[in-house]
């Protein structure tokens, strides 16, 4: 049995085709990435899986349960972290978390204090008074309370500072070791790289690739900026470079290829400074998927 099995899922909003024949499978215990630029259909696909929106055609099963027919049952096994957190303003975090936990038969409310301490969340504050990041922490705690078999995370790190992101990732790693399947949606490639074994790439409502993270990495372009001590006489770049721009002794270009080749090329020059940067997703699509 697969953790998630999606077959030819479609969603139309009038003339707008939000999901086009979306199909993918996630094994139990896997950490599966879902990556694409904003507006690509990541959240739409997740909302369809959770039963928040009706699909136009296609089928999907989560942990063996049909999303249309057994929504209530399958949601009892899912922990869902929304990208934008909207909770009941008049409740305190503790009230919200207890209210949420009471919907499940598998909840462990002792985890509330434990996790609040871990994420440094003040449980007595009203939701209304929480910052964006603190609301997110509340949402994170909420999705772990009932020991879900599957975590569906939609842009989970937005609003979290790097320290909390780290703690969150560590918590995810522990949960995953216990057997929890994780469906991780994000537009930040480095997060997907850190967490996932495989990832689906979605663009304009279509899954354009399902790949091992390793092969995604090899195809990944890097933005390279170099400051030479002296402007070099020889201006040949390593194989796989493009879009080079010179400005006196400063150079920037994009590189796709083995990282060791790039490093040995950098080594041959007398450098002041160098920066290797992950490109934004749009340029990955431009440079890789449309080539």
């Amino acid at each position: 049995m697969k953790a998630i099995k999606v077959e030819k899922l479609n969603k139309h909003y009038g003339d707008f085709h939000a999901l086009k024949d979306v199909s993918f499978e996630i094994d139990k215990g896997e950490v599966f990435g879902f990556i694409g630029p904003n507006g690509a259909g990541k959240s739409t696909a997740i909302r369809a899986l959770l039963g928040l929106i009706q699909t136009s055609s296609g089928t999907a099963k989560i942990l063996g349960h049909d999303i249309q027919l057994e929504g209530k049952l399958l949601r009892s096994k899912i922990g869902y972290l929304p990208s934008e957190v909207h909770y009941y303003d008049e409740m305190t975090s503790r009230e919200l978390l207890e209210y949420s936990a009471n919907f499940y038969t598998t909840s462990d409310t002792s985890k509330i204090d434990e996790l609040a301490e871990y994420f440094e969340l003040d449980l007595s504050k009203k939701i209304n008074d929480l910052s964006f990041g603190n609301k997110k922490k509340c949402a994170i705690i909420q999705c772990f309370l009932h020991n879900p078999e599957l975590l569906i995370l939609d842009e989970p790190t937005s609003g979290l500072d790097p320290l909390m992101q780290n703690r969150f990732f560590e918590l995810l790693e522990t949960e995953n070791k216990k057997g929890t399947t994780i469906f991780f949606s994000s537009h930040i490639l480095s997060e997907i790289q850190r967490m996932c074994n495989r990832a689906a790439v979605i663009k304009e409502g279509e899954i354009i690739a399902v790949e091992e993270i390793q092969s995604l990495l090899q195809k990944q372009m890097k933005k390279v900026r170099v400051v030479f001590k002296d402007s070099p006489t020889e201006k040949t770049l390593p194989l796989g470079s493009q879009h080079e721009k010179w400005n006196e002794n400063k150079l920037s270009f994009e590189y796709v290829g083995p990282i060791s080749d790039l490093i040995s090329w950098l080594n041959q020059h007398d450098l002041h400074d160098t920066v290797l940067q992950e490109p934004d997703l749009d340029s990955i699509f431009m440079n890789y998927y449309e080539r």
Partner: peptide
């Protein structure tokens, strides 16, 4: 209106309930 339906509807409860 308050966007809390997302919270409520992702709990294990049917819309009819």
């Amino acid at each position: 209106k308050d966007h809390t339906s997302e919270f409520l509807l992702t709990r294990p409860i049917s819309r009819k309930d």
